[in-house]
Nucleic acid binder design. Structure first.
Lengths: 362, 362
DNA sequence: ACGAGTGTTGACAACGTTGACATCCGAACG
DNA sequence: CGTTCGGATGTCAACGTTGTCAACACTCGT
């Protein structure tokens, strides 16, 4: 505590010293509440409450005295107590469960969502599930106990029936990216099938017939849709054995990298590769970018530097997804009680250099 | 809604029925609390509480009855009430203020932080300030009213004296990326000076003498450190007029793009460019990647595809920053009450292709 | 048979806030 | 001068939970 002795003339030094006296500790004397403020101002606690909340019927002079007492004490209203008193549905917390909020897709989605709800005085609590079903369960419970006003879920679970009771109790759920199963709730989803179909059609058009696919965890519905739709398009074009060049469960960049290497070592190797999300595309790029004659590549999800790298992608707008999610959610909070609505957002193929590589001497 | 009012013997039947039909709405009949559970199980509310919390001294049979009642009612403990009862410092919320949580730097930092605190049963509330000082003020207040257990701040404000009272009241603050001013609090920072110095030295070594700098908002301390340290190194090498190629306040990608174009149009144009953060680097790349003979480039912050693009960067580890932040924060929550600690994390220059471009015929 | 333990349960207060209602005071009105 | 009115303030209960303490029903050892 005696620290910071060297009398340095630097501004910072002084500051450092000043604080050493009152470092935060666990044994604080309890924050002042309305009671303390009221006592100090010499009024009843109700009057103090009125004064601080700007209700009418408080004498000007009284209000000033209360305000001053509050300032001196460092009073800060206790939001929890207020919410408790006002009854459950005044919480200002919105919960969001995502697989990995470090992933640009989720973080942009969350960011877009947060920007919208912020204007309503709502705050976003985000938690990573790490795509783990048990985590998801536990964290959902924690958020619900915290009485979040609504819940945004990018779920990994195969079913959401366990949430039915909560849903009936009036907590709005909005599922993002992955649809609810066994529960009728709002959702904001991507046109995965459409996007995957476009990708396949694009490659077929360019003459590719041996196309590798690297997919994410096979249990995720998004991945299933992208893979099966892509495959269906290939099959429709007469490529029956498309599954032979399919590798799934490449959930992280390293695994994706290995999967791509695996595909390339085959004989004959695919002349094009479809990667079903941004992480996998990244892994693929790590492998392909140093090859003299890499196969064509199409990835699902836009990449930060997609245009500069010249990677053909099936793109969409995560921030907009966040905004749409906010819209559904806020309408529920505003009283809309109709049937569940699903918003399916479009995807768009952006052809760039990486798909212009011809099938070559396959 | 008309259904199931008919005389059912079950106490709660009416409510259950009501729920089965309708979508979630604002007019819910109030969630069941301990009172309802206790009534249904035929015990006192204290016994119900004991049973559900797994305290000792509850008969096996009683516990089962309570549990069943709770399940049937869809009971969920009210975390707010619990925290209120238990006294202020049991909140499980950690607040985090960031400029833009859609930026990979912040989102990775937040993700790393969240992963650490999650194991302690803590949840992270993140809010975007959009680098706006008024937003930051308001949102800080909101988080503090919500009684977050600790606050992580990437601040835009020039001073943090207004937080002193809170700090004394025992709320741990951890400043990230940008240091506290007028307040002695923990912080996790980057070695901005070191990194910028390395960048400058690297370019000088390669023979560059006319170097452009594109910086972020000039009021941000991080940017100031990076710019001034870079400049100091240039000046020490005899380049006195380095400020002539300095453009600041390029806060978004578009502005950065224009700034770079501006630099390139000069005569003579700089033979190298230093960009002080990831957004600006992105803007620069958009311009440079289609030039036949672009200037050399070094950027602060790693890029997702930095290795593939061959961009020389001054890198660091945002996720690790998040972990370090969590460490300081958790130690405070565990009772550490010593002086403020600043953790300065190292940065590292990764030379790649973009800086290997020679000064040319400058 | 009696006090001491042990297991089980309940009544009550309190956390900090606010809505409902009551009270008090002075001014305006008939 | 009594009545009414409205502004200003206070009292009380309640939100849902848990800690404290007391009470009860047993069993056991003496």
């Amino acid at each position: 505590m005696i620290a910071c002795l060297p009398a340095s003339g630097r501004r910072r030094a002084g500051i450092l010293c000043a604080m050493t006296e009152d470092a935060p500790g666990p044994h604080r004397p309890g924050r002042p509440g309305l009671v303390e403020v009221a006592a100090r101002a010499g009024v009843s606690i109700k009057t103090a409450s009125r004064a601080l909340n700007g209700e009418g019927y408080v004498a000007h002079e009284t209000r000033q005295r209360v305000q001053q007492a509050a300032d001196e004490l460092g009073y800060r209203a206790n939001g929890m107590a207020r919410e408790l008193r006002l009854g459950g549905n005044t919480s200002t917390l919105i919960g969001m469960l995502g697989g990995d909020l470090g992933n640009p897709f989720y973080s942009k989605l969350a960011s877009g969502l947060e920007r919208e709800v912020r204007f309503r005085g709502l705050q976003l609590v985000t938690v990573n599930t790490d795509e783990d079903t048990r985590s998801e369960q536990r964290l959902t419970d924690a958020l619900l106990e915290r009485r979040v006003r609504a819940l945004v879920v990018a779920s990994t679970l195969p079913s959401h029936e366990h949430l039915a009771a909560e849903h009936r109790h009036g907590i709005p759920f909005v599922f993002v990216d992955r649809p609810p199963v066994g529960l009728s709730a709002d959702a904001v989803l991507l046109d995965n099938r459409g996007g995957a179909h476009q990708a396949a059609a694009h490659l077929l058009e360019l003459g590719h017939t041996r196309i590798g696919i690297v997919g994410d965890l096979s249990r995720l519905s998004t991945n299933q849709e992208r893979v099966t739709s892509f495959g269906a398009t290939l099959r429709a074009a007469g490529i029956a054995d498309w599954r032979e060049h399919l590798i799934e469960d490449a959930h992280d960049v390293d695994t994706a990298q290995r999967a791509v290497l695996d595909l390339l070592r085959r004989d004959p190797a695919p002349t094009a590769i479809f990667t079903t999300n941004n992480r996998i595309t990244t892994g693929a790029l790590r492998v392909l970018h140093r090859l003299p004659a890499p196969p064509a590549l199409i990835g699902f999800d836009e990449l930060d530097m997609g245009d500069i790298l010249g990677v053909t992608v099936v793109t969409h707008d995560p921030e907009n997804m966040g905004r749409q999610t906010a819209r559904l959610l806020l309408e529920r909070l505003d009283g809309y009680a109709g049937t569940a609505r699903w918003v399916i957002l479009p995807t768009r193929l952006i052809p760039r250099a990486s798909s212009r590589r011809p099938p070559g001497t396959g």
